[in-house]
Amino acid sequence: METLKFKTNINCGGCIAKVTPALNETVGEGNWLVDTSVPEKILTVKAETISNSIIKRVESVGFRIEKV
């Protein structure tokens, strides 16, 4: 399993609630975390999934995301 980090604009509890179903479906519940306390709003993912799949899923629910 690999740890991937992404810079996002997921910046509040409401945003996390909106992206939760997509991330849980893509990488599994408990395999991701968004740090909203830093300006970059870092999404950390532990997954075997290719980062492009994660990027597409997060973008599909309306958020910006880029690999760090």
Rank of each mutant, 00 (worst) to 15 (best):
M1K: 03
M1S: 15
M1A: 11
T3Q: 15
K5F: 12
F6V: 12
F6G: 03
F6L: 09
T8G: 05
T8C: 06
T8Q: 06
T8I: 04
N9H: 11
N9Q: 12
N9T: 09
N9M: 14
I10D: 02
N11L: 06
N11C: 06
C12A: 04
G13S: 00
G13Y: 01
G13I: 05
C15A: 13
C15S: 03
C15K: 02
C15H: 08
I16Y: 05
I16S: 10
A17K: 14
A17H: 05
A17G: 10
A17P: 08
A17W: 13
V19R: 03
T20F: 03
T20N: 07
T20Q: 05
P21K: 08
A22T: 13
L23F: 06
L23R: 08
N24A: 04
N24G: 08
N24P: 04
T26F: 08
T26I: 02
T26G: 06
V27E: 05
G28V: 12
E29Q: 15
E29L: 12
G30I: 06
N31G: 05
N31Y: 04
N31T: 05
W32A: 04
W32N: 02
L33W: 06
L33A: 13
L33N: 10
L33T: 12
V34L: 11
V34G: 04
V34Y: 02
D35H: 01
D35A: 09
T36Q: 11
T36R: 05
S37C: 07
P39F: 12
P39Q: 15
E40K: 14
E40Y: 02
K41G: 00
K41A: 04
K41E: 10
I42Q: 03
I42W: 04
I42V: 15
I42S: 03
L43G: 01
L43F: 06
T44K: 00
V45D: 06
V45P: 09
K46P: 05
A47P: 08
A47L: 14
E48T: 03
E48W: 05
E48C: 03
T49E: 10
T49K: 10
T49L: 15
I50G: 04
S51C: 09
N52D: 11
N52P: 05
N52C: 09
S53T: 13
I54P: 01
I55E: 03
I55F: 02
I55V: 15
K56N: 15
R57A: 11
R57L: 03
E59K: 15
E59N: 09
S60H: 11
S60E: 07
V61D: 09
G62Y: 08
F63A: 04
F63G: 09
F63V: 12
E66W: 10
E66Q: 07
E66D: 07
K67Q: 14
K67P: 07
